[in-house]
């Protein structure tokens, strides 16, 4: 009988640690989720109707105050870029690249500026007006604003 209780106790403990493990995993993923960031002066410009897909596909080119949206992206093969495109735009990187290539090589549009790292992305968004980009985690900083679009 005692053995049974010990066994049960061990099982319960295992179950608890299993749950803890799953929640840790979920947390780790949440930390790893991409965050859309905009420069401080652009926050007031954001509207609920702004669609991230339209901004990054360069269909929406201007903020409501008439200033051009400056789009920054990471390279196509960057893990954070791939995650961002899937999670926040509902697209695949190759679809976005197709759109940008068509504009670039027919002269009908200017593609986003590619930065090489998260650090450079943060630097650009902090020091460029009317800019939008993304990073892989929330960071402290007054000049970094998060864009929680639907």
């Amino acid at each position: 009988m005692r053995l049974f209780f010990i066994n049960r106790y061990i099982k319960q403990k295992r179950l608890k640690s299993l749950l803890l493990c799953i929640s840790l995993c979920l947390n780790a993923q949440a930390v790893d989720a991409t965050e859309v960031i905009v420069s401080a002066n652009a926050v007031g410009q954001l509207k609920n109707s702004h669609k991230l897909q339209a901004i990054f596909s360069l269909r929406t080119l201007y903020w409501p105050n008439g200033e051009k949206i400056k789009v920054f992206v990471l390279p196509d093969n960057n893990a954070v870029h791939k995650k961002f495109v899937k999670e926040k735009l509902g697209m695949f990187p190759h679809q976005l690249r197709r759109t940008w290539n068509r504009m670039t090589y027919t002269g009908t549009g200017q593609p986003p500026i590619t930065v090489d790292s998260i650090e450079e992305m943060l630097d650009k968004i902090q020091h460029t007006n009317n800019a939008i980009g993304y990073i892989d985690r929330r960071v402290e900083g007054e000049s970094i604003q998060y864009f929680n679009a639907p």
Binding site: A28, Q29, D32, A79, D136
Partner: peptide, 8 residues
């Protein structure tokens, strides 16, 4: 997950 963050 941790490794991914580290590599980045």
């Amino acid at each position: 997950c941790a490794q991914e963050i580290d590599t980045e």
